[in-house]
Every structure is written in C-alpha cells, then in structure tokens.
Computed example of a mutant assay.
Amino acid sequence: MELTNKVAIVTGGASGLGRASCDQLVAAGVNVAIFDMNEEAGQQAVSELGSDRACFSVVNVTDEASVAAGIADAVNAFGAIHILVNCAGIATAGKVLNREGQALDLGDFNKVISVNLIGSFNVARLAAEQMAKNEPMGEALERGVIVNTASVAAFDGQMGQAAYSASKGGIVGMTLPMARDLASVGVRVNTIAPGIMGTPLLESLPDNVKDSLIANVQFPKRLGLPSEFGDLVVTIAQNAYLNAETIRLDGGIRMQPR
C-alpha cells in the first residue's frame, strides 16, 4: 500500500507501542486517528503530531457503540480508514492458585480476555466494515490492512500469565481465519508478537529486573525499541504480499517460566 495520505486508526495510541506506531505512520505520510482511554495523553499526542495529521477519540475497545463513534469521528476527520493498528491492552497478572491456595478470580481473567482479545476483534470487525467501502488501491487492489498486537507470551507464557497468554494466543489464532474472511474484500490481516519492549512501563523497572529479562534475549542484548515496533507496522502496511502472518519481534528471546 502506498501510504501517503492514507488514514490509520491506532488503538492504545496515546502511549507505548501505540504511540510509537503513530509516530512512524505519520512520518510515512499517514494521518492517524488515536483511540485511547487517556484523554490527556491523547490530546498531547495530537498536539505533538499536529492537528492536521492526527485526531483523538476516547474509545473503550470493548464497547461497540464507543468504537463505532470513534470510527465515525475518524472518517469525519480524514474521509476513510485504510489501516488499523490494535495496540490497546492490559497485562494483569495472577496465578491460577495464589500462595494461599485461592483460585484466580474469574472476573480478572474475563477482563484481560475482554480487553485484549475481544477488544481487538471488536475494533477489527468494525474497521474492516469501513475499509470494505474503499476503492481498491494499487496493483494488488487492496482496500485495507489490519495489524493486531499479540506477544511472545502467546508462545512462552510465564507463571502468572494464564489470562494474558490466553488473550494473546487468541489473537495469534484468529490471524489466519480473519485474513481468509477478509480476502474477498481486499483487506489483509497480520499480527506482531513483541518481546520485551522498552516502553515506559518496562523502562521503569529496577535495573536487576531488566537485566534478568535482557539475559534471555539472543541479540541484540537490550530491550526492543518502540520505534522498531512502529517500523514493522509501516512495513506490514506497505507490503501487499504480507498477509495472515504472525511476526515475532523479540531479538530471539524465549521466555523462562518466571
């Protein structure tokens, strides 16, 4: 896809990997509609990216009406939707049984699944509905591309990550069938499974904790750069033959049990 003047929705776009995706997409000529629950951070992102290149909507990805309203705002601002980057998510941890032998609260498990998996699908299905209205573009005659965010936890889930790993494994699992479902309308679907990325949350950890995580990275021996995630988003959007794939972005890490 030629990216100049295309329009992307980025969920969780006010911080972390979502914000890095916004930065790289705007640098590539894309206009971005940021969906996030943090209005202050969202408005700051728009100010920094430029109000002519970015807009912001408070969106709860688990709520159909909220997502539909956000999509309507984005179309009103920029005229169409060509790209979706799903970065919104939570990483609540909890063992199946805690130290006192009590089972993990089912509500906690449900919340992670609801935000990470169902929320990603909710935005994807409504964005795809809008993308299907686009005129076919380029030699591939594509109408759009969806990039979902999983995690290496989908494959190497650690202790306490049953809910998180299940949510991210679900995203990996739906990549191929979603791509097959949307092939007839020219919409591609791919997933990025990042490893330990240098988001503000991870960068704030004590050095000994970060060092123990980095020890499992093969090369280069560091946290991943959010800009590297954003670069991959741009590459996926540009490459029309890249479809139905889950790409690990992790420096070769294989997570240990704890």
Rank of each mutant, 00 (worst) to 15 (best):
P136R: 03
A163P: 14
S227I: 09
A127W: 08
T175C: 05
G224Q: 06
N208S: 04
D211I: 05
A127P: 12
S167N: 11
E142H: 14
L205N: 10
L141S: 14
V187Y: 04
A128W: 02
K133R: 08
N208T: 07
V185T: 14
A215N: 15
S204H: 03
A153C: 09
A124V: 07
R125T: 12
S167M: 04
A132Q: 13
S151N: 05
Q158T: 11
K168A: 10
V152Y: 06
I214C: 02
D207G: 06
Q161W: 12
M131R: 08
N216E: 08
G170N: 07
P220D: 06
T199L: 09
Q158M: 11
S184M: 03
V147F: 07
A183E: 06
R222H: 07
L213C: 06
V217K: 03
V152G: 02
R222V: 02
Q130P: 03
N148F: 01
R143F: 10
D211E: 14
K133G: 00
I196C: 08
P136Y: 11
N148P: 14
V217M: 01
R125V: 10
L213Y: 11
Q218G: 08
K210F: 11
R125M: 05
G186T: 03
R180C: 08
S227F: 01
Q161L: 04
A179V: 03
L141W: 10
M174L: 13
A150Q: 13
M197L: 12
G169T: 01
N134T: 06
S212G: 06
L182S: 01
A153P: 03
M131E: 09
L141F: 08
G157W: 00
K221Y: 00
G170D: 04
P194L: 00
R125N: 04
A179D: 03
P200R: 10
L201W: 15
G198N: 05
N216S: 08
L176H: 09
N208I: 09
L225V: 04
V147D: 13
A153S: 15
A179Y: 03
E135V: 06
V217T: 06
G186L: 03
E129P: 00
A150K: 09
A215W: 14
M137C: 10
G224V: 05
G138H: 11
I214D: 01
A127E: 06
L213P: 00
M137E: 15
L213N: 04
D207V: 14
P177M: 15
F219K: 13
L223C: 02
E142F: 06
K221V: 07
M137Y: 14
A179G: 15
V185C: 12
S204A: 15
L223K: 05
F219Q: 13
R188K: 12
E203W: 00
S227A: 15
L225W: 08
M178R: 02
K210M: 09
P177G: 15
